[in-house]
Design a protein around this nucleic acid. Structure first.
Lengths: 231, 231
DNA sequence: ATTATGTTGTGATAAAAATCACAACGATGT
DNA sequence: ACATCGTTGTGATTTTTATCACAACATAAT
């Protein structure tokens, strides 16, 4: 498969994150040393919650999701992962076990970076480690926002939050794609699948969204924002 | 007041965090440069959510709490802060506004470290920045746990989680002190004050805790753990 | 002394959300 | 063509939780 050629070495990788562009070829070589890429099929587990966190996963192409396996067989969907994103924090820094499971939503090419080597690169280049720290801090800040949403808003507000996030941050268009199921939205907003469906249907009746064969098209963004704020 | 003498300079500070002990006197001098200590009275705001995050607060003595000001006049209590803890992340790294408010629960002596200077220290000493990163990652990991608790457990389980955390991590004894109010526990567990009181009373009837003039004494830790797991 | 004020506590009621029991539909496999 | 399976969707019902309306009590203020 010619796609693996993209992954010959880090310095020539054509899916190089802005973060990696801060590293010199020599520094990249440190990370390149122990890295390897693996292609995952839809539904396959890339990282499993509870296993030792000795790799940072860099998504080269595809689409994945990460979720915490919680209580009563319920999952808390944390995020969808697009190419050029890093997955592994915070466990990779505390030296513990992965805090979540990561699964390929579509066929996904993932690069496994050795945590030790990555840490070495953080040592070598302070600009790199600084920017990486900013990325981690942004993730943390988002988790605080979600804690507020999950604990203080009721279902309409939480669904609105989810749709806004998926539209603005994940799909970067008004159309939320087919690979986000109703169950995903329920897992993202901490409610039952039934309730999530009900509210999406309600939003459709109110002209806020269009539901067309499993995609969700946002029709009235301002109203959605107002529901997010007041719910 | 002789207490301020404790705070003459960082290198002789007798409330020096293990993290600061990684820094040489010269490196400490960088941080010492722009720092200042302020004594806060009970109830006074130390950091205000929404203001520019250009200081990292280091608690020298006292007791404080941090909470997100959320929706409908509700607060999400994030944590209690004891001496030798740093407060300011993640905003101080993203260069934005504080994500939460910090208030003195008792009289508190707080040291304000300039974010730029702190960042300089992170630049100078990789061991220091590595350990700091671990601290931040642990905080982030805890927020993931809390997201699961808040979104998947019902009230009994959440109250159990709160009591376990307060007992084990904050007070480090079975006695949760007077400066944690019922409203605090409600804000920590994302429920109404009324519900929090009701469940605490129920726990008392079931012999799980003792409520004696505003302190909460944990009587049956194992049962509390089981409620935390199955709730 | 007595008026506020804040916290704790309690029952009754209302609202929110989960659960249950299905139906409809499409994709997949045999 | 038919069964199977997973996802979406809906109404009825039950459970969970918030809200409301107070009372009791302590503390602080006048």
């Amino acid at each position: 498969m010619n796609k693996e050629k993209l992954c010959d070495k880090c310095s020539t990788c054509n899916q190089k994150s802005p973060l990696f562009q801060l590293l010199s070829d020599n520094e990249l070589e440190v990370i390149n040393d122990d890295r390897y890429a693996v292609r995952f099929l839809e539904g396959e587990v890339i990282l499993k919650q509870g296993t030792r966190a000795d790799n940072l996963v860099y998504v080269i192409e595809g689409f994945a999701k990460m979720y915490v396996e919680g209580f009563n067989d319920r999952n808390l969907l944390l995020d969808f992962v697009k190419p050029m994103q890093f997955v592994g924090a915070p466990a990779v820094h505390t030296g513990g076990k992965y805090n979540y499971t990561m699964v390929a939503v579509r066929e996904t090419l993932a690069c496994f970076l050795d945590a030790e080597k990555f840490s070495k690169a953080l040592d070598l280049n302070r600009e790199f480690s600084k920017h990486y720290m900013v990325k981690c801090s942004e993730e943390y800040a988002r988790s605080l926002d979600r804690m507020v949403s999950l604990s203080q808003k009721q279902m309409h507000g939480r669904i609105a939050d989810a749709l806004i996030y998926l539209s603005e941050q994940v799909y970067e268009t008004e159309v939320i794609g087919v690979d986000v199921s109703r169950q995903d939205i329920a897992d993202f907003t901490g409610m039952s699948k039934d309730s999530a469906i009900r509210i999406l249907k309600e939003f459709e009746r109110d002209g806020i969204v269009n539901l067309e064969d499993k995609t969700i098209v946002i029709h009235d963004g301002p109203l959605l924002n107002s529901i997010s704020m007041n719910g």
